[in-house]
């Protein structure tokens, strides 16, 4: 099917009301004008190019979009960008060192083959990091770790290796 050349639709754009939002993302202060209904997940991914945060269901069940909001894990698909005004957001991109060196949790995931397609992984990592950094005592029994992971779906691994990775990361970080 040969298509006729038509005018570029460059004039087509959203007419959503915009509002300014200022927040900290991975240590950097960001100020942007955003649509009032834009999800935090879309803001991080498409406005800031932080595409490590993944979107799996957009109804808050799968956990792939988990980020840290003021140190606590939260669903960026159930949060509006404007709700993050003044917040301190951390995404998966903040975990590795500036030289690319993997965070002990990331390393444990690699060593334990705790990821396959890698789509749920950033949300898993951020959820687990929130536990590792919480200062609360960790229950590192199988059952305890399963409970820790119970807000994140993975369709590839069957979780067994993720459980092992959590345990070895906790040990590497002196949390066990």
């Amino acid at each position: 099917m040969r298509t006729q050349r038509t005018a570029n639709k460059l004039g087509v754009r959203s007419v959503d009301p915009q509002v300014n939002v200022t927040l900290t993302v991975n240590g950097e202060t960001i100020s942007r004008s955003v649509s009032t209904r834009m999800l935090l997940s879309d803001f991080l991914r498409h406005e800031l190019g932080l595409t490590g945060t993944h979107v799996g269901c957009e109804h808050g069940v799968c956990g792939a979009c988990t980020v840290l909001i003021n140190g606590r894990s939260g669903r960026s698909c159930l949060t509006l960008a404007v709700q993050a005004e003044g917040a301190d957001i951390r995404t998966v991109e903040s975990l590795a060192g500036e030289d690319g060196a993997l965070h002990p949790l990331q390393q444990a995931f690699q060593e334990n083959h705790a990821l396959q397609c890698g789509y749920c992984t950033p949300g898993m990592l951020m959820n687990i990091v929130s536990h590792l950094e919480s200062g609360r005592p960790l229950d590192l029994t199988d059952e305890g770790i399963r409970e820790m992971l119970s807000g994140n779906l993975c369709r590839c691994t069957g979780y067994q290796n993720i459980i092992a990775a959590v345990r070895s990361a906790a040990s590497a970080l002196g949390k066990s």
Partner: peptide, 21 residues
């Protein structure tokens, strides 16, 4: 053997379709 692809995926540097700018 550990997987070659893992560091990229773990850092959030994968490129899934919706990640392509």
């Amino acid at each position: 053997i550990q997987r070659n692809i893992d560091p990229q995926l773990l850092r959030g540097e994968g490129s899934f379709v919706d990640d392509i700018p």
